[in-house]
Amino acid sequence: MSDTSFRDWLTADAPASRAQARAAAWYAGWLKLRGNTLAMVGLVVLIALILLALFAPLLATQDPFVQDLGARLKAPGWEGHLFGTDSLGRDIWSRLVYGARISLYIVALVALVAPLLGLIIGTVAGYMGGIIDVALMRFTDIFLAFPRLILALAFVAALGAGIENAVLAISLTAWPPYARIARAETLTIRNSDFIHAIKLQGAGPLRIITRHVWPLCISSLVIRVTLDMAGIILTAAGLGFLGLGAQPPSPEWGAMVSEGRKYILDYWWVATIPGLAIFTISLAFNLLGDGLRDVLDPKEAGK
């Protein structure tokens, strides 16, 4: 199939099959996203970071764990150390590249677990209403009432230190806002005619929630998740700093920042460079999130 006819196939006004209709919807979304320059910048940066993580062994100039106390705290550019070295003489660039794996891993896991939990609790509460709503929402309030880091600390303390447990702890503290959003969305969707219509076909609550309510809630959750990414990375860093997240010597970005904190006045790059990495990834997620808002907003879908 040639290039133009493939595009015609994607933009056809009357798709001939289920697959074509779905592909056309994705293509329309992609075109809209592509029109948003900032979102594309965010997307490119994120893809670059993912590639960085994937090809870490090729891109790293040194072993991220090898210490060289003779070459500690050297400035960026010193003898091939692109970003200099840290307090144990490890190459910061190599640690950054390997650290991208850990940071992205944490982000990806939290981004899956927390919104899903929030989505389930929020939509069930919003759709069922009554006593279920009250119970679930007060439960959510209890979680919201605790400072996030303290709650995560308590979970990690109970579950034991380590990245997986840190992820679990962050997820368990991050879901309440998603539950609130999902519930608010559900309340507006619940009384719309298309929900009434499917009810009149005898559909049960489970089907309505998963097939009809979820697709409309997911978009606002996705947007919120991308905007929360920075916070998630920082919480992970905070846990690492307290010795409850990623364990040294693993090059997690947050842990790198907290290590460099001691030297911030005399050797700025040790903390600043991983800090800039965190800044870049959060900014990229924010830009992408803004673009996705335009593409995914169900209110826009009708236009």
């Binding site: 289920r18 209709a21 719309s192 005619d193 298309f194 009434h196 219509a197 499917i198 009149l200 009809h212 697709p215 409309l216 169900p298 879908a301 009708g302």
Partner: peptide, 16 residues
């Protein structure tokens, strides 16, 4: 069965 007033609101926006 029932037919609703507003055809813009009675079809799920994400369903073909």
């Amino acid at each position: 069965q029932m037919v609703f007033q507003d055809p813009y609101a009675s079809l799920h926006p994400r369903h073909t």
